[in-house]
Design a protein around this nucleic acid. Structure first.
Lengths: 174, 174
DNA sequence: TTAATTGTTTAGAACCTACTAAACATATTA
DNA sequence: TAATATGTTTAGTAGGTTCTAAACAATTAA
């Protein structure tokens, strides 16, 4: 392969690896995707292992991760016994959905915990001394403030949903 | 302190620490903020060190982090030589701005890299063989697809900006 | 000026994550 | 059936991050 083109390809792989990392995913996930994204034909695990110079196990685990959330598709290649993969075209959608779901889950966890704490305070209330009651009041106030965020966040998530582009607006692949 | 209330406080601190971590920040950052958020008076470093049972160095570094991005404010407490801190009320705004800026920076980095790659291909073009030209074509096509995302992302970020609530809509502190 | 108080920096320890190499499981061919 | 090809799982390791303890710096008090 032409060394100039190889340099470009490797830069792209590097850039996408970094982007992946900065989004809280592993570097290799981004690199694998980048590789498939640039390729005009499906690649096997061994192809990827060779180009990225990583272990087979590493590639295996990370390609399954990509597959699991629909960024990559396993395809059959005539005459080969190996699994081959190609990139899915609407990654943006997939990525945003992932971010959204993640945020949603985190918020839900947080809100559940907050709810439990409110209950706990209300249960203990009766036996509180005057000072303790004052503290409890403040806690309840703060917890309620957080609860109010829930609707705000909900609005935000709706916003994100609306933003996620339709598949057919981003056509790909010759 | 009442053990029930202490339990609630510690749950809150734990929850916020986890939320912080899941947003890519350090656990202690979230815990420190949570502590100040619940407190009805400013706290000193040593107060926080004692409650969270962490080292002074750790607290120092992380409280400065919080201060640096405006989630926490250093306040003067009469008769004490120590620095005291209290939580800023519009954290949601601060957090969303941070997320936005972070995304923006990442996208810019990515786009810069993509631009450089396009140039590199165009420079080398002349001496490419037929096969290499075909590969180069594909690369250029893919890079352009990515470039198109820029405007989409820009739209999204505008969306986020609009979403960020005004300070006075979320009043706090008695 | 010395001693005490307080916040910051740093060297090393503890911890966690992601990787490799090798063993393993499964399917295919001979 | 044995031999080969392929993907997955796992034990151990390497590298990076974050923490602590202690040294340090700077300020205040005696």
């Amino acid at each position: 392969m032409n060394p100039e083109l190889e340099k470009v390809r490797d830069s792209f792989i590097e850039t996408m690896g970094q982007l992946s990392m900065s989004l809280g995913l592993s570097q290799v996930v981004g690199q694998l995707y980048a590789l498939l994204y640039l390729s005009n034909k499906p690649l096997s695990l061994d192809d990827m292992v060779e180009i990225l110079e990583i272990s087979k196990g590493n590639a295996s685990v990370n390609i399954r991760e990509l597959e699991r959330w629909g960024a990559v598709r396993r395809v059959w290649v005539k005459g080969s016994r190996r699994d081959h993969y190609e990139s899915e075209s609407d990654v943006l959608k997939v990525v945003l959905n992932r971010l959204k779901d993640g945020l949603q889950r985190r918020i839900n966890n947080t809100m559940d915990a907050i709810g439990k704490m409110s209950e706990l305070i209300n249960e203990g209330k009766k036996e509180f001394s005057a000072t303790e009651k004052k503290t409890a009041m403040i806690y309840i106030e703060r917890l309620n403030e957080i609860k109010e965020f829930r609707s705000v966040i909900r609005g935000f998530l709706r916003n994100v949903s609306e933003f996620i582009p339709e598949k057919d607006k981003l056509q790909r692949r010759s």
